[in-house]
Design a protein around this nucleic acid. Structure first.
Lengths: 340, 340
DNA sequence: CTTGGCACCGTTAGCGTTAACATATGCTGT
DNA sequence: ACAGCATATGTTAACGCTAACGGTGCCAAG
């Protein structure tokens, strides 16, 4: 542990070193109120030479203001979230607000714990993934008296503001596009995560879309754990062996879709003629595959950006609180859905 | 913004509601000191019904203890960091410590700002990527009087503890393996990031390894921005057009390596016979490619885990501070380096 | 010369919690 | 019965900072 020579530095040390009151030092360090240039210089020099770092704990307590924004996401392995966080981080960069991330691993009790912990730091706002929370979590957010922005998903009752896409509609649109392209015997491959509500809603929307065309899923399979690309391969092989007459596979994310695509190409299957494929997310990581997988953009950066703007009070609609921002995911037909 | 009915709740509200002193409430909520079961019940019930959430700002100020750990990384787009953060997050989960993430975008001035901001919350420890920091940043960490753990890289002078791998050595080992496999005309493809010190060190180690065998790089190319997979493709095509006699390509990360691999396979190039390929990172995301790219594991989870243990004071060596943990990346020859 | 205003800086009183100590109550053993 | 101790609760004084307000000196206008 590096040097901790004397007791921790306080404003008083800087004030003594520069011969002014603590209040003046505080003013200088926060750029607030009038201070002559001469004293400002002196104070800054003293602070620097001492290596003083303000104590925001005390500052926040005294001023009742905290520049932290709590950001709660289920996972960092799912490629979607790092992107959202990046959007948030970038947008907050020049607002004086600082994001504080917490991860729940898709576990409601973890979410509750992380939320409690974060609220106890009295952040300026909360950005949290999803609309499904425990009763206690909802109650905490309702009572916090700060802006709450639920992100990713708009299918449900928000606590305050919400920024996201309709996953139900995303699935629904995809189903319509697939049916319109003439595919009829459709299989679904997804994750075995009862708590991933967005994946569930996409599938529900998808099935609804099929139903409207008088169709239903011919086969489905779910996986958990392991590398998505490899799983996509395996599951595709398995499903095509089991249901060889399928003419379309809808994957719940791009990674398993890419695995499936690679497998099909190796097998010499005619994609998209004999078999169509689609994923979800618009993971640009995957640009550069032999063929562009059909997908739907989840608007990850934009979600992060808009959510951050909302907590920063820079709403693009001028409203305050209770805002609903539904973004529209664009369908990218790629090279794996045939054009008629 | 959700209801903010009355003024914010404090310990006093809970104490009045339960008919005991604030101190007793505080004791109950922290599980510290003796409280009779009867009062404990009463206090908990009151706190719950009021929806009280403790104010850690005040608590931290009074107790001079903060359960936050500052975690500073350059980026979240680079697949490596989400993995490290996941390791940290998981390890800290049952220590009562809470990670607080900050992102610098590889910009030293950003790093300095984020660090200053985070230190001003007086965290219990700091986990920060890399060994290269501005003078001011180093000074801040030296004076913070808390455990500092620099991660990812061990090639340099740590401030306090360090957990990582030697990127120089990683490059060096890879060069030796490639040479041993009989390749002689070698090209390098990497990122154009002067501030990505680890990539730089890998390349230096790599060149040294070649030099020791009397070889040098025949060609090199650097990219920035864009999708890594697509870039890998493009750059590989470009380089092979320019230097058709190359017999090995070393990529600074697995994503561009994968792009290159896909391109080679499409071109019908004999990999690894005619042309060998290798990347870096051991991104398990990529398991499932038609062929397994040779790579070197960066020990991402383990780095996160060990670093978290260190700030949590659970050093695996029993030492306190100033610890150096060098992990050994394992070389995975995959299917893209020929075996003799 | 006064008056008012402005620029600059200091004083006072908390912010909500906890450490440390003080007090009250019951119980044990002799 | 009463010291002696453990258990259970209360009281007081910080923690380091900032909001709010109060001076002081100086200058321009009346």
């Amino acid at each position: 542990m590096p040097t901790d020579p004397r007791r921790p530095l306080t404003l008083r040390d800087v004030s003594e070193a520069s011969g002014v009151s603590e209040m003046t030092v505080s003013r200088v360090l926060r750029n607030r109120g009038d201070v002559s240039d001469a004293t400002r210089e002196r104070v800054l020099a003293a602070a620097k030479s001492l290596g003083y770092v303000p104590n925001k704990i005390a500052g926040a307590l005294a001023s009742q203001r905290v520049n932290l924004v709590a950001v709660i996401v289920p996972s960092l392995s799912n490629l979607v979230f790092p992107d959202v966080l990046t959007g948030i981080s970038r947008t907050l960069e020049d607002t004086g607000l600082q994001p504080v991330f917490g991860v729940t691993n898709y576990r409601p009790e973890r979410e509750e714990a992380v939320l409690y912990e974060m609220l106890s730091w009295r952040p300026t706002g909360v950005i949290i993934a999803g609309l499904e929370h425990s009763e206690a979590a909802r109650a905490m957010m309702m009572n916090a008296g700060i802006p709450i922005v639920e992100i990713m998903d708009v299918d449900g009752e928000p606590i305050d503001s919400v920024v996201g896409i309709s996953h139900f509609r995303a699935g629904h649109e995809m189903a319509k596009a697939i049916v319109a392209a003439g595919y009829r015997r459709i299989g679904f491959l997804g994750t075995k995560m009862p708590l991933d509500h967005r994946a569930r809603k996409r599938m529900e929307g998808f099935e609804r879309g099929l139903a409207e065309a008088g169709l239903k899923l011919q086969d489905r399979e779910f996986y958990e754990g392991g590398s998505a690309l490899a799983k996509g391969r395996e599951m595709t092989a398995g499903m095509m062996a089991r249901s060889p007459d399928l003419d379309f596979l809808y994957y719940s994310n791009d990674m398993i879709g890419a695995g499936g695509l690679l497998w099909c190409l190796e097998q010499g299957i005619d994609v998209p003629g004999r078999l169509g494929l689609a994923g979800f997310n618009g993971v640009d990581l995957l640009e550069g595959l032999p063929r562009r997988l059909a997908t739907m953009d989840a608007c990850r950066h934009e979600i992060g950006r808009r959510a951050a703007k909302l907590v920063a009070g820079q709403s693009e609609t001028g409203l305050v609180g209770g805002e609903r921002v539904e973004l529209t995911p664009t369908l990218d037909m790629g090279d794996t859905i045939r054009r008629r």
